[in-house]
Design a binder for these strands. Sequence first.
DNA 1: ATTGAGAGCCAC
DNA 2: AAACGTGGCTCTCAAT
Length: 721
Amino acid sequence: MEGLRLNLDALKPAAPKTDAVQATAKRKAKAKTAEPIEESWRKIFAMKLSDADRKRLTEVKAAMDAGKLARDPADCVNKAGNPKAFSKAEALRLWKTLQEAQREETLRQMVENTPDNYWLITTEARLDEFLALLDNEEEIVFDVETTGTDVWNDYIVGHVITAIKADVHAYIPTKHKTDHPQLDNEYVLEKLCPYYEDESIGKLAHNAKFDIHMLDREGIKLRGLTWDTQEAMRLLNENEPSFALKNLVTKYLRIKSDTYGDLFGKIGFDEISDLNIALAYAAKDGDVTRKLRDFQRYQLTKFPEILRYYETVEVPLISVVQKLESTGFNIDLGFAKEYGKEIKAQIDRLYAEIIDELGDININSPAQLKPALEKATGEKLASTDAKKVLKPLAKKYPIIKKLLEYKELFKLYSTYINALPELIDRKTRKLYTNFNQNGAKTGRFSSGGTGVNLQNQPKEARKLFVAPKGYAILGGDWSQQEYRCLAYFSQDPKLVDNYLQGNDLYASIASEVFNKPIEDCGDGSVYRKQAKVIMLAVAYGGGANMLKDAIGITKQEAQKFLDNFFERFPVVKKWVESNQAFVKKHGYVWMDHSQRKRRLPDAKDRNAKGYYSAVYTQSTNARVQGSAAIQTKATMIALQELCDRKTAEGRGEWRIWCVVHDEALLLVPETLTKEDVKDFEDVMVNTYVFGNIPNKTDIEIMRRWGDGMSVDEWFKNKEAV
DNA sequence: ATTGAGAGCCAC
DNA sequence: AAACGTGGCTCTCAAT
């Protein structure tokens, strides 16, 4: 501890340089008899290092070479008093010291260099002066500082607002833990509310959904969002390694900026008692967000279709998603408890039985399971992958069959049935999660962040999600969304015709690929089932390897199926090849109507690892998956408008409840009418159409997710009651 | 106790 | 001739 403090002192920029250098020299002398540090470094860098460690170690070495950092004398000798070699662990400890020193120095400089147009507002007079500026603004930047990033439990401690025309960047602290005077929270909210809620004042933000959530919790409904620099960046370069504001402005605007975590670690912004530090950091956010927006808008004007898509779909979608997230999910706790108990009992029984046969191992550890299974069966196993390796052996070995049963139940229990109730918010008794509208590089949504991914809930787990009393879940599934997209892009006459006639696509494909009469390829037939998987492999751009695992056949057979498919659908084949040629030439592919790119730079680089495989399959997959996502997103905006319209009719509130790629679910009053359902279907089917291919939606109404009934059944039951 | 990597598996 | 669709969470295991 003593040594650490000493070291820190040596690092302080305020300390005379000569002292630091002298101290360093002294320590070097002391460690002279140990292994030379260059030799230690050589050994450390020869080790197998993670990327993060390698980066840190490089920084430490640079600082030490420059004389800015030295070993702690206490670390140079061991207990016996003999010299101790420099180790990786010691180097990583020094990295933390370095970080701390750099952090302090950066903050000091930030405060020292705070521009005059950064206003710290802590008096009513100054706030009035600033609001007078806002009265002349057409567009402002907003950003709230908070105690943390949990939109359900953290809260606002200050507001950042940039008056763009006036070129003033204000920070208005309200809840910092400080002796410095600050304005009252309620007073500030009341004063700012009219501006936040004024549709005619355009709003820019970075990751606006977060700020909209936070304001929503204070009772403020943000209106007039015009730009989100984070979502814009996801269109400009989906491969960006980081979408943190500071990293983007450092990279693209050459404005050196440190991330919040780099400067403050894990503390909430209210912990920053020095309001000058708070101002320097917070006001800069507003400043650079505006600059980044200008840069992005300039870039996007080169692609008018992307810009139009961004402004008409992605930006409005942000508020829609915020509203969706705030709806939350009701979990049937009683059911979860009973169901969980039942599964747990089965798991325990299976575990005991398996242990009995395999010996006392941890079944959940692949490293322990593999040798035990090999011993028990005498088979050489490539892994313990259930689908690829164990399933084919299940018939031969009862122990493997039992193990598969266990694995399935364990997954269901640990990830879903047992985990979901734990994540319920204490205050509202609801489950919340995060939907990231550009979480996938193709533009698909991702979901999760708070422990639950709503997009991968298995059917059994979906049963835990119920409509609150008086409500029903109105769900729509686009029928074969991605295949319709494939038909549209390829214009394969057989596929197009199929959709125009409204025939059973899988049966048609099965009939073609397996050369069987259509009547042998109907519902329930093995041909139809396999055709479905083949189609999936084609749409996902997968090869024979993926297909063989999916239907449990040999690679040769899978390849033959694919060959057959492409032989029978040569137009699809041509389209797939054209995508490959395009990506090879340009390094990217277009989604529908040039609204979005998927950049695959490896395609232009013959030496890249994935040159012959990944980018080729991705070139087709991205176009299909990404265009389907555009359909979903455009429709979500129309669905929110529908919800607003229906709610305004005064028959109860309509909300978007959940979205799962090609599935949209609304929470609606259980008194909904057939006409309401018709309006929903109309929005689903007609909002976004892939050219000449009509959409189709399967609709269900449910009280429990995944446990729905057809519209006819629902209303028949209603009449019966 | 916390962190990070890897294996595995759920969804569309 | 070749051939890795997009995500997120839980577990183990090794490292601090």
